[in-house]
Design a protein around this nucleic acid. Structure first.
Lengths: 164, 164
DNA sequence: TCCATATATTTCATATATGAAATACATACA
DNA sequence: TGTATGTATTTCATATATGAAATATATGGA
């Protein structure tokens, strides 16, 4: 019996009381929320010794996965799934810690470039083993075929959410 | 091409730079985050006319799905996926709006009962059609078999996250 | 009874995130 | 050129969420 069972039970009651209430979508949405909270909390706990949060980690990793380790705030907002006002704040925090650098773009002077610093790179190398272990453990219960299937279905779900 | 493609591309780069970095778990975790943000934002936008947030909605619905429309804060924390300190705040807000009532338990005087009020019930009936429409639309891209499969896999994923 | 320990909830200071307005620059075109 | 419109980012006030400590009650022995 997992932590989701009581939630599921309550959704079943709702379906009885409200015949139009669609069980499957409601269950999926609630599962997504439970999963997100858990993943978020676990990552925050793991990263605490490095003094960064999960959203800050995501920003570092999106820069890391980019040619030249550089992105604009707006690209970062999309890649990391954050609002642009939040990117400003997170970037401020990462700058103060010396993990990224903020420079003005000269092709387009409205734009700003956020670049991983030497220290940021070093920190990624440092926490990478722990991150890899966490990620492996989080999906240890799924067979490779299941993982692939789950990825496919989640993408399809996201596609639908983003339609209009 | 959806909003997730750039993120996925960056994870692929990370896999090249860090051979130990496990692609599949990282992609799943990132997908969960993107999905959650979207679902959360959409629900907040839909509920705005009723003056409640997505977390507040979740609390109302968990009470609605319970015998006697009543739960303790700690049960609510688990059901709604919120921390208990947050339940206090959300319950305060819902009380002020007259949607729930807070009463002391007399079997165990540490406990508090949160009960859906007549007004809370009426509000649920009022927003229910819009919520049903949103939920249907969110999963319109998935076939019934896919939805069922997705539910199964997400539960398995959550089970694993909650192990240890 | 008394005490140690555990559970339920709240408080409070602080951290995190948001929308809307403000700022600055770019682009198109009359 | 001048002006309207669009895009990129930040600012700021406010909303939302958290951890850790505080409060109150319960429970199980010694």
């Amino acid at each position: 019996m997992n932590s989701f069972a009581p939630t599921e039970q309550r959704l079943a009651v709702t379906c009885r009381l409200q015949p139009a209430f669609p069980r499957e979508p409601a269950v999926l949405v609630r599962l997504i929320k439970h999963l997100y909270k858990r993943v978020h909390d676990d990552a925050n706990a793991l990263l605490k010794p490095w003094g960064i949060s999960h959203p800050e980690y995501n920003i570092l990793m999106m820069l890391y996965g980019t040619e030249g380790y550089t992105l604009n705030p707006s690209q970062l907002a999309e890649a990391a799934g954050e609002k642009s006002a939040n990117i400003t704040r997170l970037a401020d925090s990462l700058c103060e810690k010396g993990l990224i650098e903020r420079t003005a773009s000269d092709e387009d002077r409205r734009k700003v470039s956020l670049t991983l610093s030497r220290q940021g790179l070093a920190m990624i190398d440092d926490f990478m083993p722990a991150i890899c272990t966490l990620l492996e453990r989080q999906t240890a219960g799924l067979k490779p075929a299941e993982t692939a299937q789950l990825e496919r279905l989640l993408k399809k779900f996201l596609d639908q959410l983003e339609r209009d």
